[in-house]
């Protein structure tokens, strides 16, 4: 390695370090202020807490009492996990069927799923939430059904792309051994789909966990089934930014689960995002 390359690398390292600080600063900012008394935040938001301003976890206690964010986190987890499980199970079966059985119906269905991917949510938000109201879907289970339907486009598309690359011989062998289509699917095909299933699960989990408008419109703000983004929106909307300490604390609380999830499944998340971007 030449000397100039070494110096260049050192400069680049410093640039990257500065960028990393910029990237992490907003998170540090809310964490830092969440530990200060609410009257000190607007006065001196950039200093570290000191003996006068430090209030420990007081903001967290107020915030949790005020917003019920713990129960919201529970519903967020419930809706995300159940929706993703339903999406993986049912859209992979659908994708398998419409890729293996070639008919006019399956072709039309395939293009309808692809089409749904490009339709923005605003196009269907009013009619979808009134339909959900009419059929009693304004509850966590109903939300999961809606997520299955709204996530079906991308998920069927990604599964179908992968099913096409699986050689038919394996399934034929299973059929000859006396398996019915369901046994063939769960015994032979589904295990092969696992890498795509992980990608689909991650893309959908990221979207559903962070989704604000669908739960806000369908479940609303007056029930006990609020999710984390809805609770955050309400905290700001209802008390007009007055308790900034509690807001900072609740922002921190809502980011922590994401950071933990990211650090534990980083490899899968990054691979999944790349695969999803290339296909979508």
């Amino acid at each position: 390695m030449t000397k100039t390359k070494k110096t260049a690398d050192r400069i680049i390292f410093v640039i990257l370090l500065i960028l990393a600080v910029i990237m992490l600063y907003p998170l540090f900012f809310i964490l830092n202020n969440s530990l200060k008394g609410k009257f000190f935040i607007s006065k001196d938001p950039f200093s570290l807490p000191n003996a006068e301003t430090f209030v420990g976890i007081k903001n967290y206690i107020t915030g949790i009492e005020k917003t019920g964010i713990i129960s919201a986190a529970g519903w967020s987890v419930f809706i995300t996990v159940v929706s993703v499980a339903l999406i993986i199970l049912f859209t992979s079966m659908t994708a398998y069927y419409i890729s293996r059985v070639k008919s006019k119906v399956t072709t039309v269905l395939y293009y309808m799923f692809v089409f749904s991917m490009i339709v923005p949510f605003q196009m269907v938000m009013f009619t979808m939430s009134s339909l959900a109201d009419k059929f009693g879907l304004k509850n966590p289970i109903g939300m999961c059904i809606l997520y299955l339907g709204f996530g079906a486009g991308l998920s069927v598309f990604m599964f179908a792309g992968f099913v096409k690359s699986i050689p038919l011989e394996i399934e034929e062998a299973a059929m000859i051994d006396g398996c019915n289509p369901l046994q063939t699917y769960f015994g032979v095909v589904f295990p092969i789909l696992k890498p795509t299933a992980i990608t689909v699960a991650i893309l959908n989990a990221m979207w559903i966990w962070n989704d604000f408008l669908l739960p806000y419109l369908v479940i609303g703000i007056s029930t006990k089934y609020k999710t984390i983004p809805v609770v955050i929106q309400m905290l700001v909307g209802s008390n007009g930014n007055k308790d900034m300490g509690a807001l900072m604390a609740m922002l921190v609380v809502s980011i922590i689960p994401i950071v933990i999830f990211y650090l534990t499944c980083q490899k899968y998340i990054i691979e999944g995002v790349v695969a999803g971007a290339v296909k979508g």
Partner: peptide, 9 residues
Amino acid sequence: TLAAFAFAF
């Protein structure tokens, strides 16, 4: 999938 897709989309 189709039932949910019909309802949601």
